[in-house]
Amino acid sequence: MPKCRVFGIDDGLKEVVADGLYMKHLFGQNISVSIVKFVEKVGHNLPAKSHHHGEEASLQIVGECSVFEGQGQTGDPEVKMAQRSAMIIPAELDHYGSNRFGAEGVSMRLNVVTPPRPEFGPEDSVPYYPLKDREARA
Score class of each variant (00 low, 15 high):
1 M>V: 04
2 P>I: 13
3 K>I: 09
3 K>Q: 05
4 C>H: 04
4 C>R: 11
4 C>D: 09
5 R>M: 06
7 F>V: 15
7 F>G: 03
7 F>C: 09
8 G>T: 11
8 G>V: 06
10 D>E: 04
11 D>N: 14
13 L>Q: 02
13 L>M: 07
17 V>L: 05
18 A>I: 07
20 G>S: 08
20 G>M: 10
23 M>S: 07
24 K>M: 10
24 K>D: 05
25 H>M: 11
27 F>E: 06
27 F>Q: 09
27 F>G: 06
27 F>T: 07
29 Q>T: 11
30 N>G: 07
30 N>L: 06
31 I>L: 13
31 I>E: 06
31 I>G: 02
31 I>F: 13
32 S>N: 00
32 S>R: 02
34 S>R: 13
38 F>H: 00
38 F>D: 00
42 V>G: 01
43 G>W: 08
44 H>E: 04
45 N>P: 00
45 N>F: 00
45 N>I: 01
48 A>P: 02
49 K>Q: 12
49 K>L: 08
50 S>A: 15
50 S>C: 13
51 H>W: 07
51 H>L: 10
51 H>T: 05
54 G>I: 15
54 G>V: 12
55 E>L: 11
58 S>E: 12
59 L>N: 13
61 I>K: 00
63 G>C: 07
65 C>T: 08
66 S>L: 03
66 S>M: 02
66 S>V: 07
66 S>P: 00
68 F>Q: 10
68 F>G: 05
69 E>D: 14
70 G>L: 12
70 G>C: 07
71 Q>N: 15
72 G>H: 08
72 G>S: 13
72 G>R: 11
72 G>L: 13
73 Q>W: 05
74 T>S: 10
76 D>R: 05
78 E>N: 07
79 V>T: 15
80 K>N: 05
81 M>G: 10
81 M>L: 15
81 M>I: 10
82 A>S: 08
84 R>E: 09
85 S>L: 07
86 A>F: 15
87 M>L: 15
87 M>C: 08
88 I>A: 12
88 I>C: 11
88 I>P: 03
89 I>F: 15
89 I>Q: 00
91 A>D: 09
91 A>N: 05
91 A>M: 05
94 D>M: 14
96 Y>N: 12
97 G>D: 04
99 N>W: 12
100 R>T: 01
102 G>Q: 10
103 A>Y: 06
104 E>H: 05
105 G>D: 02
106 V>W: 11
106 V>Y: 06
106 V>L: 12
107 S>Y: 00
108 M>H: 06
110 L>S: 11
110 L>A: 14
110 L>H: 12
112 V>L: 14
114 T>V: 04
115 P>D: 07
116 P>M: 09
116 P>K: 15
117 R>W: 04
119 E>A: 07
119 E>H: 04
119 E>D: 14
119 E>L: 02
120 F>N: 04
120 F>D: 01
120 F>S: 03
122 P>M: 02
122 P>E: 01
122 P>S: 03
123 E>P: 03
124 D>E: 08
125 S>D: 10
125 S>L: 03
126 V>Y: 02
126 V>T: 09
126 V>K: 08
127 P>H: 08
128 Y>D: 01
128 Y>F: 12
129 Y>S: 05
129 Y>M: 10
129 Y>I: 05
132 K>L: 04
133 D>H: 15
134 R>T: 11
135 E>F: 02
136 A>H: 04
136 A>R: 09
137 R>G: 09
138 A>F: 04
138 A>P: 09
138 A>L: 15
